[in-house]
Design a protein around this nucleic acid. Structure first.
Length: 583
RNA sequence: GCCCCAGUGGCUCAAUGGACAGAGCGAGGCACUCCUAACGCCUAGGUUGGGGGUUCGAUUCCCUCCUGGGGCACCA
């Protein structure tokens, strides 16, 4: 909206350069670091450096140029003042019209503020990817929260998104579970908390498998029955997989996640084996059976050295591997949908594997292979650099964490707001607890390891979701006390305090933050933004009385409170965090 | 050996090549007749792992080294 003004300024600088024998096109514009006033800045260092006259150091020369330009630019319309400082020419906008436009836009757009209409080809995001018959722990949580948040942000940035979930429903862990169930729990039905029940039985089967050689032998025999297509075993598999899926659904409901397309590992096993034959016929794969597996030697194929290594696509005994199934799955996705991009939210340890998969598909001639993108994230550790492993018992179960956090949040609500009814308290406690758990998972960069510890996870103060949620509650509590309907628009004609200006500036940044976060797949940018916005609102809250304000300030601040609340709620929503209205 | 990631106050983390490197926690102090203190204010705390380079300007880009983590043929 300031393009015309910038053009005038640009012309003026060009004329200035020509008159002094300096090269044109050396000056670019940027926003002045915000400190209560909006404006654009022109750093004059590049121009100073290009000046053939070297009698002055660059910094001094830049300042001299800025000062020379200052007097000429002072006449330009649209600016309230012009200054030359430390080599920058700063031009400040007249603030009132800017402010009114920002705040008005937010109220008009409401929940859509920060979002663009969704256009174009869809993007598929594959995430969560749990194994049936197994528990979800805090490590899995990062994947779900990150994936879900990336989807929200992509949608807000104007993409159509397909949320995909690839379920590991076959393999040794499933056989172990079923074998243990038949031997020790035959006929039992899951309890109301299905996830928990499945998890307990999984732990039991895992224990028996490693401690009891007899059980191990039983499992092996059971695997044979599965392979030979035993009807009873397959019926039990269908039933128990269904239970597991119900359990996942309970967790997804709790977390507020949903999926548009579910893929099962069992669906692509056969097509994977067919594909191996095809790759052998094409001469891409090498058959080492029966002693050795079927492999693709990518480095040999491509003439690279120790870059793509070797992919094993089928065991020497003819059974399938992870890679066997990944290939047909990738193809299926692009056959089913005309995808702009196919994104895989998978932890960083699988980077080489993902690189190999897209390379194999490229070698096979699929042009879309370049549109696969591995969104790598680091794992969640325990203090002392201990990796979570269900085998070593070093896991924090999702269930336990949510239960504990909810309990603590409930106690805080009881203390802070004893007059609320029990249902409201429970509802608030759940929203606060889930926010507190989710926030640390997405507030750091994807490539940084998250170290889980109970103290941090249950800390509701400082840079945390509850802090941001509390800002929403404060905004709401002002609006709630109003006896008349809140004004929808106002003129910002009163003397704006720095706290108000800072808040408006922060609010105005949301759309840009969303775009950047989408382009880089980084919810952490939104997480940081939401916190800074809450800080700005709290500053405003303590410094600017709203209900007791007089004159035009009251209406203006009421509108600003609404805009802040909308922005906070929208930002939290992108992170998959709900905003309670009271807490 | 090859490849990837990380290294910023005591701790956990921010910072499109641009102005003085910012927050939170922890520490010390202040603050509650005033829209909820799950809040706010002040103070202390930094050679951005080391060394080179590019640039008017580097936490940011390049090279190199160090430290930590991860990956590299029948796990996923």
């Amino acid at each position: 909206m300031f393009d015309d003004i910038k053009q005038q300024l640009s012309d003026l600088i060009d004329a200035f350069c020509l008159s002094r024998g300096l090269p044109t096109g050396k000056v670019e514009f940027r926003n002045i670091p915000f400190s209560g006033e909006w404006g654009i800045a022109a750093p004059l260092f590049p121009l100073a450096a290009a000046d053939p006259d070297k009698s002055l150091p660059v910094a001094k020369k830049a300042q001299a140029l800025a000062e020379a330009l200052q007097s000429q630019a002072s006449g330009l319309p649209g600016f309230s003042r012009v200054e030359a400082v430390r080599g920058y020419l700063n031009l400040y906008f007249e603030p009132h019209s800017y402010v009114g436009r920002v705040v008005g836009t937010v109220l008009e757009q409401g929940v859509r503020f920060g979002s663009q209409p969704q256009l174009g080809k869809p993007v598929m995001v594959e995430y969560s990817n749990p194994n049936t018959h197994k528990p979800l722990h805090v490590g899995h949580l990062r994947n779900v929260i990150l994936g879900g948040s990336v989807c929200n942000i992509l949608e807000a940035s104007g993409k159509r998104v397909i949320r995909a979930n690839y379920i590991g429903d076959i393999g040794l862990h499933v056989i172990k579970w079923m074998c243990n169930y038949e031997a020790y729990h035959a006929g039992e039905q899951p309890s109301a908390d299905i996830m928990r029940w499945m998890a307990d039985l999984y732990a039991e089967s895992d224990r028996r498998f490693s401690d009891d050689p007899d059980f191990e032998a039983q499992v092996r025999a059971y695997f044979g029955k599965w392979d030979s297509g035993d009807e009873h075993v397959h019926a039990l598999w269908e039933q128990t997989r269904h239970w597991s899926m119900q359990g996942f659904q309970q967790v997804y409901d709790l977390l507020g996640e949903h999926f548009d397309r579910i893929y099962f590992e069992s669906d692509v096993e056969e097509s994977g084996k067919v594909m191996v034959e095809k790759l052998l016929k094409l001469g891409i794969a090498e058959d080492g059976r029966p002693e050795n597996p079927v492999i693709i030697d990518l480095d040999k194929l491509l003439g690279t050295k120790e870059e793509y290594r070797v992919v094993v696509i089928l065991r020497s005994d003819g059974t399938s591997l992870y890679a066997t199934k990944e290939l047909p799955l990738a193809i299926m996705k692009f056959e089913e949908y005309d995808l702009e991009q196919s994104i895989y939210v998978i932890d960083v340890r699988q980077s080489l594997h993902m690189k190999q998969m897209s390379k194999v598909l490229e070698v096979m001639g699929y042009p879309w292979a370049a549109r696969m993108h591995h969104l790598a994230y680091e794992i969640v550790n325990l203090p002392g650099n201990v990796t979570m492993s269900s085998r070593d018992g070093t896991v924090v179960l999702l269930d336990d964490l949510i239960r504990e956090a909810t309990q603590r949040a409930f106690e805080v609500v009881q203390e802070k707001n004893p007059s609320l009814d029990a249902d409201s308290m429970r509802d608030i406690a759940r929203k606060v607890a889930l926010g507190a758990i989710k926030y640390p998972m997405i507030s750091r960069e994807n490539t940084k390891i998250v170290t889980f510890d109970w103290d941090t996870a249950l800390d509701f103060n400082g840079q945390s979701a509850p802090y941001i949620q509390y800002a929403v509650v404060r905004a709401n509590s002002i609006l709630r006390r109003l006896s008349e309907p809140a004004p929808r628009k106002a003129d910002f004609t009163h003397d704006l305090l720095p706290a108000e200006l800072n808040l408006i500036e922060k609010i105005s940044q949301l759309p840009d933050v969303v775009q950047k976060a989408a382009a880089e797949f980084k919810p952490s940018l939104v997480a940081t933004y939401a916190f800074e916005l809450a800080q700005s609102f709290n500053d405003f809250y303590t410094q600017c009385p709203v209900l007791s304000a007089v004159g035009s300030a009251r209406a203006a601040r009421l509108v600003l409170v609404q805009a802040a609340k909308i922005s906070l709620e929208n930002a939290l929503s992108l992170l998959g965090i709900q905003s309670p209205q009271v807490m």
